[in-house]
Design a protein around this nucleic acid. Sequence first.
DNA 1: AAATGTTGCGGAACCGGTTCCGCAACACAA
DNA 2: TTGTGTTGCGGAACCGGTTCCGCAACATTT
Lengths: 329, 329
Amino acid sequence: MKQVTINDIAKLAGVAKSTVSRYLNGGSVGKATREKIERVIRETKYEPNQFAQSLKSKQTKMIGVIVPRLDSYAASRTMMGIDERLTEYGYQMLVVNTAQQTEREIEQLYNLAKQKVAGIIWLGTTVTQAHLQAIAAIQIPVLLIGQQHDDVHSLVYPDYESAYALGQQFMEWGHRDIIYVGVAEDDIAVGQARRDGFLRAFNEAGAVVRSMTTTFRIDDAIPIGEQLATDVTDATLVVCATDNIALGVLKGLANGGKRVPDDISVSGFGGYDFTEVLHPSLTTVHLPYRRTGSRAADMILQLLTGEATPMKTFTTFELKLRESVDMLN
Amino acid sequence: MKQVTINDIAKLAGVAKSTVSRYLNGGSVGKATREKIERVIRETKYEPNQFAQSLKSKQTKMIGVIVPRLDSYAASRTMMGIDERLTEYGYQMLVVNTAQQTEREIEQLYNLAKQKVAGIIWLGTTVTQAHLQAIAAIQIPVLLIGQQHDDVHSLVYPDYESAYALGQQFMEWGHRDIIYVGVAEDDIAVGQARRDGFLRAFNEAGAVVRSMTTTFRIDDAIPIGEQLATDVTDATLVVCATDNIALGVLKGLANGGKRVPDDISVSGFGGYDFTEVLHPSLTTVHLPYRRTGSRAADMILQLLTGEATPMKTFTTFELKLRESVDMLN
DNA sequence: AAATGTTGCGGAACCGGTTCCGCAACACAA
DNA sequence: TTGTGTTGCGGAACCGGTTCCGCAACATTT
């Protein structure tokens, strides 16, 4: 069960180890020797030691992936997409979790660099100076998903545009008294872009909006729904910044005896699979997480080869207009 | 930006590199030299090269985690738990995805061994001879989660017992005409143990059971629900082998105009978070995925140190009796 | 036939650590 | 003073690859 080394191969084939190495890396090797080496390698099932290789080359066939949470739908789907493509190209995905702590993101950037990953895909929530500094320092291609910054290659969701589009749809359907449930602003994409997209649509139509803030956790949104159920309000629609929030709000409303969409409409954002099988099915924006993961893998691989790659790329989106939002007209 | 090496440290501190190495690994070093080395290391921010270390030691501080799918709730939660604990102990998690293909599990066992992970946590679906052979061959501790086999250390969910308990509860509530929606038998835990647990409870009470089989995908369960909605049947309860199946069945029933639990009851299995916020909230069995992940991390670390560890450990479970199943009496 | 170019291959150095071995310096017991 | 243990440290080998350099053998040109 001992490791077969290049020395063993060399000895068995009766050549120098440098020749074996050259054979493995496509250098010039004569026909006769090539065949000898080939045979020995096949027989011994030789596989090069990756540490020895990396020690010399200062590189690995790994792409680091920094995720804020392991158990978010978006992160899972994105990881699937990344992994799929990476595997095709003989790369491996090294996932590191930051448990939503910004400092850990920075820590992990350095850490991944120490581990000599070939590139890093970063599912970001916010971009700070410390991030940029780290990225500049580590000298490794970094691709940012979900947020944008001029100094980092990024693959971004059209949060603003899709929120605007969905908002316009709601306006068209006659909703004019809206409750918006968002998240804190330090998440630029979700906390700001989505909100601003919606607000623009609402403002353009002259709608009344009441804004509230919660977290990404379902549980925190339930009381908001309950509150809304008891409030005396003329609002016809609750617009939520994520599907999870919508889920909590729906629950809260149900707890308070309100029916959706008969008493009030609710929309989500993100397009989790199961939003379709809810009853009522949830109106939301579908973001192509998985495909985005695949594209991210493609892009980081491109960056590795030094190919020209646009700094910023937008993904598509798709409005899922379903039962949870009523047409008033 | 160049790597600082142990040679640099040795030179700067005016000692031999072996001394530096000894200092780093807790060997005997005099006070004066220790302080010199300490200072130099601090000033240069020296960090040992992991490849060089691994090359010599034939080990890494990584634990491989083999998962069938990256986007399953159970897998995500389990990974969280694993990662949490591993991080505490200075280990890293290397996740590999098998996309539900058994051959890839085996491939990955060998692959992880090649990468010299210290241990492997395997979220299994089925245990074949090829698996056992691989595990024996690679000479690395393997911990199996979710399935069991006498020859492999395993951490297993009480699928049978919890299904039996939940089934008994349903019997107590007076359900006697049951539809069971399960998955294929090649998943021992889900396809067999859960089913058998339920069936035992149903049989003991003399209930009538009709069994159906589907996949783990929500979409595949929808037609089943729809079918059930139109069928002329006296069944009062649909028992599903997973929450996802329950979700699909619920949708199908809703599509067919059936109300849950008024017209018919539905139960799930797994205890996904959002089953609680569904309306109606779903009766299910909660399995402690996250904690199990943490325990798995503990156990694999124990195995590494050669500590005695039981071959088989059961986790707890918790019945979540909620709105989706009616009490008939 | 001599000069020049090409190709195949071996030797040695190197990547950055760890570890074994042996020597020198010192303390302590006899 | 001599002998015996410790302790601290340096030198060298080693882990398993890659790469540079140079030499020999052969092919090609003049």
